[in-house]
Design a protein around this nucleic acid. Sequence first.
RNA 1: GCGCCCAUAGCUCAGCUGGAUAGAGCAACGGACUUCUAAUCCGUAGGUCGGAGGUUCGAGUCCUCCUGGGCGUGCCA
Length: 567
Amino acid sequence: MAKTLKQELDETLEAAVRVVASDVEADLPLDKCRFGPTRSPEHGDFATNAGLVLAKPMRRKPLDIAGELAAELLKSDFIAQAEVAAPGFVNVRLADSAFVHVLENISREGAAYGMNDSGADESILLEFVSANPTGPMHIGHCRHGVTGDSLARILRANGHPVTTEFYINDAGVQIKSLGKSFRARCYECVTGEAPTEELQYSGEYLVEFAKEFTSSKTKEDLDKLSDEEFAWEARGRNLEMIKRDLEALGTRMDSWVSEKALLDDGLVAKSLDRLRNSDETFEEDGALWLKTEAFGDDKNRVIVKTDGELTYLVPDIAYHLNKYERGFGTYINLFGADHSGYPARLRAGIATLGHDPEKLKIILMRLVFLMKNGERVKFSKRAGNFVALSDVVEEAGRDATRWFMLSRSIDTEFEFDMDLATEQSSRNPGFKVQYAHARICSLESKAAEGGFPEASSPADAIASLNSREEHDLIIYLSTYPEVVERAGKSLDVHSIPAWLLGLAELLNSYYTKGNTDPHFRILQEDNRELYAARKVMLDSVRRVLANGLELMGISAPAHMSRDEEEE
RNA sequence: GCGCCCAUAGCUCAGCUGGAUAGAGCAACGGACUUCUAAUCCGUAGGUCGGAGGUUCGAGUCCUCCUGGGCGUGCCA
């Protein structure tokens, strides 16, 4: 993998700093020296604050230091001009070779452009969604499903071997309740009499399942079935529904782990034994407690109740023991903000069972609230009054849903307005990115039909790619690998769509400039050779748009057609 | 009460490890389709970055306090 332009320039800066500050005894604050694209053309292409940062350790004026840095930086082949600006910046204009470097990297690496192998030695188990198999998934699961999937893609792009996993909570009391509700629905189907007891799970989906299940069964058949069998049947059907929903969302799970299986294998019992025999648990008031306080919990937690039943913590800790025994480098859990008490408890359990709790990273994602008719809908799976994930995907479309969900920081709770999302799906900002991609595809196919020349080499092309707009585009393209790397390190998905939108805006703006300025028209009959140069850049933009959309699990269409019916 | 998180344009949200005049979408207003797809673009208007201090060359970004909101704080899961 070739060095990115950013890496090259960082090395150039570091070398320059070492020369200029060679007589400084103390450690140089290199990590505080920035070298990056500027926001304003008058500041050149790239700028560094190194002069300001070095002023204190060197005990000299920032402007003087900047002057010496500028002279050093000019020695680089990638830098054409270097100017000092108050209060102590160095503004740099890049040489053609820098732009060539970027275009060559993209052209050579193609779909791999932006990827790196820094995470190759750290395998990751990424658990997310893990919705209880007691009903359809809702809007909250949608955010988790999309974010987790995209996170997996980003981590893989950073070289990590990633396994995505869904934990099936199929052994607790909620499954028993599900079984009871399902049994009641089955009898309702067979006898025609409405259930007399109140159903814990009253959603319509159970009625549908019951119809399917009892279609060739009699009341006598049902009488032979145990509660557990009803529960397992409903669990299976719910799980199939969850799998279908995840598939509709474009989310892939590599692994499914069943709580019941862990229980049947004796892992829960084994975990409990080890917990009980450790110094980190104690008996009090007839219950067994785990010392979670030592890991930041407000208070210690009961793991075995006075009636001998286990709390949810024991199977959860057992599951994490199972994870650790599979030997990953890092374990990431994507939880909802309502699980903020979990990290301390799980870490306490993991440490007590002799594993390193630092390998467990828990991401707490803010909630999504559903807006309908101007107010928040309180949804409850038991009551069945929620908008299902499948409805959202169906109405807004997979791409629009994913864009919408991924564009927001996981630290921000936001309101998903169902009506607005459906109505605005055709004006979703994500379409702008897809449109930019389709636009280039369209141009290129048109050029091919018209017999325009193929792309030349970047080195040959660069002389013609000399406008500010073209330089800005190429510089922007050069920052993509950093964005991917940063997103992988900070587990921050939403920076990808934000960056892509920036690229799409640059491209669209560049394209539209051709409407008013003939020089910027890409297909010029009387200047066909110009296209050979521009195609180099267009190919790069198209490539990187597609790479970024791939990380989001959003399609990069070659053609976009609009429903003419809409008005 | 305690813990974690949030507060940026009318609305929904960006703002990278502190960097030079705070950005986008929607909504508002004015423009650009005989044209390489107008799902686009250009322009105008809209901000005391919740409030008050502090750290320094420099703060939306870091620290403290305050205000307002969310979640958690079950021998529920």
